[in-house]
């Protein structure tokens, strides 16, 4: 069977959304701009294990409050409004690894899937695989893929690649670790990856001054999954 009008509609809507949203930085050819949407990374010269969201070193990293919006509905089944409106982001780089810490309010704990009607809480950090802000933040496109670090409340972290809506695929090399913890009515999650990697697929993090980054949060109780999520609609800049 062949894809017909649905794809066309999605693509034209996407183009519309890019223009209407004023996402200048996402347009092809545009370079990342150092605007207000910056997450500053705490750079450390010594080895520190920041895998735990409660690690003491996180007290030293700046906290950036990132507002989230409903994701662009990439296909017609996505209906409803995601419940998360913002996420507190911190980043930390050691000589070996990059750590990203996310904290957001979610009063309902969805850590297990017991049946067809249950979904888990989740979070994701997205980078353009080529490191360029000209890549669309809406799951990339066939020529410009995105690299996603994902955490799910059932404990599964995953490194993923996508080249457009509906193409999300686990990366050949699983190099992402993640740990989530509950604190009062929120989730605290740290996702991490070693800077040096053995594959050409994933985003390169060595020798950079900054990299575009995007965030997504799912609330399982609200049946959020797939493109039904709260996201940053444009790239932010992760500055080292």
């Amino acid at each position: 069977m062949r894809l017909t009008s649905t794809t066309t509609v999605v693509i034209s809507l996407l183009a519309l959304a890019l223009v209407a949203g004023g996402l200048g930085s996402a347009r092809v050819g545009a370079q990342p701009k150092a605007g207000s949407n910056v997450v500053k990374t705490l750079a450390l010269r010594q080895h520190v294990d920041a895998t735990s969201p409660e690690a003491a070193v996180w007290k030293r990293a700046a906290v950036t409050r990132v507002a989230l919006q409903p994701a662009f509905p990439g296909h017609p089944s996505i209906v409803g409004t995601p419940s998360t409106v913002g996420v507190a982001v911190q980043a930390l780089r050691t000589p070996e690894s990059l750590y990203v810490r996310l904290e957001w309010r979610d009063a309902t704990v969805d850590t297990t899937v017991t049946g067809p009607g249950r979904f888990v809480d989740a979070a994701a950090v997205q980078f353009p695989a080529n490191g360029l802000a000209s890549t669309t933040p809406f799951m990339g496109d066939p020529a410009n893929r995105v690299n996603i670090w994902s955490w799910r409340a059932d404990g599964r972290p995953q490194a993923l690649l996508a080249a457009g809506f509906g193409t999300l695929t686990p990366a050949a090399v699983q190099n992402v670790r993640a740990l989530g913890m509950r604190a009062a009515e929120s989730w605290q999650v740290v996702l991490t990856r070693r800077l040096a990697i053995s594959t050409d697929d994933d985003v390169k993090l060595v020798g950079l001054r900054e990299i575009p980054v995007a965030f997504a949060i799912w609330n399982g109780s609200n049946r959020e999954r797939d493109g039904f999520k709260a996201v940053t609609l444009a790239w932010w800049t992760l500055r080292f």
Partner: peptide, 30 residues
């Protein structure tokens, strides 16, 4: 949304590629 389900041209059997499925349950709903 992921085209994880396909219909075989040789016999029309409808199959779900579990390696492509990410458990969104749109098929269960539909």
């Amino acid at each position: 949304p992921r085209q994880s389900i396909y219909k075989r041209k040789e016999d029309g059997i409808v199959l779900l590629d579990q390696s492509r499925c990410r458990g969104y349950r749109e098929c269960v709903r539909a």
